[in-house]
């Protein structure tokens, strides 16, 4: 029932993107997002699209599966297109009907902005598809490390994030099971008035809370039993290390930035 939400989930693998350091991937995305906002003509967009396709190839995931990550935002994209076509004015008038016009700049903006959204979504899905949640939070923790000096509890935030991410699939599975079990007892979640449907959530919500609390308690106990005392003095099993892949990404980033800067209007 909830299987469709696998989108955006980590797919284990050994591709270039999988093995690159999460820190460089995060930094690269920040750079890429900036460049997407700087792009303002067909040429620069073409460069970014070509680059994104190439990055997709580097992940060795099927293109269809990567494009599926657009599913949750397609309404937003369509909405943006419609809004720009109808509201943005300027340039040649393509179509006129009373006060209502479709003009050149509107069409252009519609295309650019929808590509902008699409590129951002795809490149960030490439990050989550090729980086395990553990690596991702560790990368974040390390990047934000300097803020710990000014009193930001970076380690605790990272730990909370990784625990939350770790338990999302577990809780989904659990929800799925509970829904099935209550359905087997005749519960009907899809029909009836709004109030009735809200009441129908109780048989799902209560067992879910009970099990979430039980899990949290177990986890806290297990961590304490193994001597967890917070981040101070903690060493790591897997140390993040930069490699030639990260150097490659840095070079690609610089080249991309120069190209966009040169060719933008």
């Amino acid at each position: 029932m909830l299987q469709n939400i696998a989108i955006g989930q980590y797919v284990p693998g050994h591709s270039f993107l999988h093995r690159a350091d999460p820190r460089s991937k995060l930094l690269f995305i920040i750079l890429f997002a900036t460049l997407v906002f700087l792009a303002n003509n067909a040429l620069t967009y073409a460069v970014l699209i070509a680059f994104t396709l190439y990055a997709g190839l580097l992940s060795r995931l099927s293109l269809g599966y990567i494009l599926k990550s657009l599913k949750p935002v397609w309404i937003l994209i369509v909405f943006t297109i419609v809004l720009h076509i109808f509201m943005t004015k300027g340039g040649t008038v393509y179509f006129q009907w009373g006060w209502f016009t479709v003009e050149e700049r509107g069409v252009q903006q519609a295309i650019f902005i929808s590509f902008r959204l699409g590129l951002l979504v795809i490149i960030s899905s490439l990050l989550t598809l090729t980086t395990s949640p553990i690596d991702l939070t560790e990368g974040l923790e390390r990047l934000l490390g300097p803020f710990a000096r000014i009193g930001v509890p970076v380690h605790d935030i990272a730990l909370m994030m990784s625990i939350a991410i770790r338990f999302i699939p577990t809780l989904m599975e659990e929800t799925d099971k509970i829904i099935k079990a209550q359905t087997a007892r005749g519960a009907n979640f899809t029909s009836g008035s709004l109030i009735k449907r809200a009441q129908n959530l109780i048989p799902i919500a209560i067992p879910l809370f009970v099990s979430a609390f039980r899990r949290a308690e177990d986890l806290a106990l297990a961590m304490e039993a193994r001597g967890y005392r917070g981040g101070v003095g903690r060493t790591r099993l897997h140390k993040l290390a930069f490699s030639w892949r990260d150097a490659g990404m840095a070079v690609a980033g610089v080249l991309l930035a120069i190209t966009i800067g040169w060719w933008r209007a």
């Binding site: 099971k177 509970i178 099935k180 079990a181 209550q182 359905t183 087997a184 007892r185 005749g186 109780i202 048989p203 209560i206 067992p207 009970v210 099990s211």
Partner: peptide, 16 residues
């Protein structure tokens, strides 16, 4: 559905 009684694994987790 009522004719088929399905008792899941760890059914006590569904009490509410």
């Amino acid at each position: 559905r009522r004719d088929i009684g399905l008792v899941f694994q760890y059914p006590e987790h569904q009490l509410f």
